[in-house]
């Protein structure tokens, strides 16, 4: 019994040490990227709600095109100023209704969410350029974080063939093709967002070239001796 207690102490200490060293930069990147995705989703939903609510006071808010524009108008100092921004002389809505101040508070909290999201995005760019400088010459840090959520670590990315990197994010289409040959195989996955092309054929070609570059860069970053 005494043996068991000392054994437990030793092994638990070892596990503790291993757990401490197990979290690397890639894990943090994945967490940050997933948070950004979640925030984007939430902000979009909340903005729809806010516009719906605010349209009771000022229905012309629907004429705005971007989220930031709508937020600026709602958060301006007075209602006259927001009318000015919309080039309005007279509005079809009525402002003297209950709950106007609460909408403003709601809009402010959405704005803080947007600021947080931007801060995390900056952090992602910073971290990716630190751990994988040559990959970041080819693609943006956000896309690299997206690749890492699929793959896990830079090491595994460096050990992958270029054609596999090209198809990351197109797994559903790939397995549909492999199950029955009637469907055409996919030509591009996540990396397609990084290239500019008019036709699908052109996009396929450019993604293939880009994935080759990314593969080389990943190998340079992980196995290279002089990291610049």
């Amino acid at each position: 019994m005494k043996q068991a207690i000392t054994l437990r102490k030793e092994l638990m200490q070892e596990t503790k040490e291993r757990l401490k060293t197990s979290i690397n930069e890639e894990t943090m990147l994945i967490q940050m990227y997933q948070t950004v995705r979640e925030l984007e989703h939430t902000i979009n939903n909340l903005m729809i709600k806010l516009k719906n609510w605010f349209s009771c006071y000022l229905p012309e808010i629907y004429t705005t095109k971007t989220q930031q524009e709508a937020l600026d108008i709602i958060l301006s100092d007075s209602i006259e100023e927001s009318k000015q921004k919309l080039n309005l002389k007279d509005s079809i809505g009525t402002i003297n209704r209950t709950g106007y101040e609460q909408t403003i508070k709601f809009a402010k909290s959405i704005q803080t969410l947007i600021k947080t999201k931007e801060l995390i995005e900056e952090q992602i760019e910073e971290t990716t350029t630190k751990i994988a400088p040559s990959i970041c010459n080819e693609i943006s840090g956000k896309t690299l974080a997206q690749l890492l959520t699929k793959v896990g670590t830079i090491k595994r990315l460096a050990n992958m063939p270029s054609s596999a990197i090209q198809l990351l994010g197109a797994e559903k289409a790939l397995f549909r093709h492999l199950q029955n040959n009637r469907n055409n195989p996919p030509k591009y996955g996540l990396l397609a967002g990084e290239v500019q092309a008019k036709t699908p054929k052109e996009r396929a070609k450019k993604t293939k070239q880009l994935s080759a570059k990314v593969t080389l860069a990943a190998r340079k970053d992980y196995y290279g001796t002089n990291k610049t």
């Binding site: 054994l7 092994l11 638990m12 596990t15 503790k16 291993r18 757990l19 197990s22």
Partner: peptide, 22 residues
């Protein structure tokens, strides 16, 4: 997987007859 062993480790600390290994 380190991710789940963290949970397991916290459980193990309260149970004297259990050892968690990674």
């Amino acid at each position: 997987t380190a991710w789940v062993v963290r949970d397991l480790f916290l459980l193990t600390e309260k149970r004297s007859n259990m050892i968690a290994l990674l």
